[in-house]
């Protein structure tokens, strides 16, 4: 692995910026779910949660600056998760 990639330093200011965005997204989730949207609020809340998770993984966990191997492994783990959630629902919804 390239040493430069491994040792990327993320500045305090950038990290604080990410944190602010995370707080804003949290406030947005609360606001959206206080309104009666029926089933849509589950989708909206989960979409925002995924965006927040993406920010945490990319910046706080440095994934944006990792090499290809780690990124592919993350992708593989998420695909595995999606497959077992997807197949379970295929069973639950059409039983």
């Amino acid at each position: 692995m390239d040493r430069h990639e491994q040792h990327h330093i993320i500045g305090y200011r950038k990290l604080t910026g990410i944190w602010l965005v995370l707080l804003i997204l949290t406030a947005l989730t609360v606001a959206i779910t206080r309104v009666e949207l029926g089933g849509y609020k589950v989708i909206a809340a989960l979409t925002i949660a995924c965006a927040k998770a993406g920010l945490v993984i990319a910046f706080f966990m440095h994934m944006k600056y990792e090499g290809r191997l780690l990124r592919w492994l993350l992708f593989l783990a998420l695909v595995t998760l999606a497959i077992f959630i997807g197949l379970t629902f295929f069973d639950v919804l059409y039983r």
Partner: peptide, 18 residues
């Protein structure tokens, strides 16, 4: 530690909000 945060990001809306 970030993983702990990550999991909570999903627990919070699912159990408290939606």
């Amino acid at each position: 530690w970030h993983l702990v945060d990550l999991i909570w990001i999903f627990i919070f809306p699912l159990y408290y909000l939606v």
